[in-house]
């Protein structure tokens, strides 16, 4: 079910001269569109097993970059290779497949499906991958146990605390054995104690399972948990290297 890992020395993720421009309707009749460029020639290479934090002020383009890295959005120009595959050449369905099998998402607002149990939330990506209901539930329960939520499988998201919901979301991200986890401010809605617990899970996943993790944050102590820092400013990479301690 999961694609073979590339034996070549390709980096997991490689971005070259990536630009993104949004065309917005000017709102004035006959005024055409207003272009607003969010990313300017971004170059970035992330190897397998890295743990990277992307930081930047709001409007720096970090969310846009994450959306492109997650195949939720397409760049205006430039190249993006994920696991050696040129993303621009993929069809909508192939992109859906990449999102399903190669990438796990963790969002700030958890983005769980409402009025669905934690178990079904975690199992849904497997259903989209073509697994049967029973085998996907079995695997989902396994992952909930791993993140310490084995007893909450039948709960719906609104019956769970923020930290618990984020653990459900992490379980969901992991359910298809992805190579890459993209986390967009995963601790943004959580208190300090819970944030630390969530970060501990990420660190463990990175260390023990070798999963590549890219997370967006604007908190220095969250970034301090990672091993590489990319700082964006006005759509450009202004720092790429060690995390300052």
């Amino acid at each position: 079910m999961i694609p073979q890992r590339h034996v070549s020395g390709d980096p997991l993720l490689k971005v070259e001269n990536l630009s993104k421009t949004y065309s917005l309707d000017s709102g004035v009749k006959g005024g055409g569109t207003v272009n607003s460029q969010v990313l300017f020639d971004v170059n970035l290479t992330i190897e397998r097993g890295e743990f990277v934090a992307i930081m930047g002020h709001s409007g720096s383009g970090k969310s846009t970059l994450m959306n492109i890295l997650g195949c939720l959005d397409t760049p205006t120009s430039g190249h993006y290779w994920l696991d050696g595959r040129d993303i621009a050449s993929l069809s909508d369905d192939e992109l859906a497949r990449v999102r399903n099998r190669n990438i796990g998402f963790v969002f700030q607002g958890f983005n769980l499906l409402k009025r669905m149990t934690a178990l079904d939330n975690v199992a849904t990506p497997l259903l989209y991958a073509g697994a049967t209901r029973s085998e996907s539930r079995k695997r989902a329960l396994e992952l909930l146990r791993q993140t310490g939520l084995g007893n909450f499988a039948a709960y719906q998201p609104n019956q769970l605390s923020g930290g618990q919901q984020q653990r459900v979301a992490i379980s969901r991200a992991l359910v298809n054995n992805p190579q890459l986890i993209l986390a967009d401010e995963p601790t943004g809605n959580l208190d300090t104690q819970t944030s630390r617990e969530i970060m501990a899970i990420f660190e463990q996943l990175n260390r023990e399972q070798g999963i590549t993790i890219v997370l967006v944050t604007h908190e220095d102590d969250i970034a301090a948990c990672t091993r590489r820092l990319v700082r964006l400013q006005d759509g450009r990479v202004v720092h790429d290297g060690r995390v300052p301690t």
């Binding site: 997650g70 369905d93 497949r97 999102r99 399903n100 499906l113 990506p125 989209y128």
Partner: peptide, 8 residues
């Protein structure tokens, strides 16, 4: 959300 987790 469904699209993000792999729905085509």
């Amino acid at each position: 959300i469904r699209m993000a987790i792999g729905a085509n």
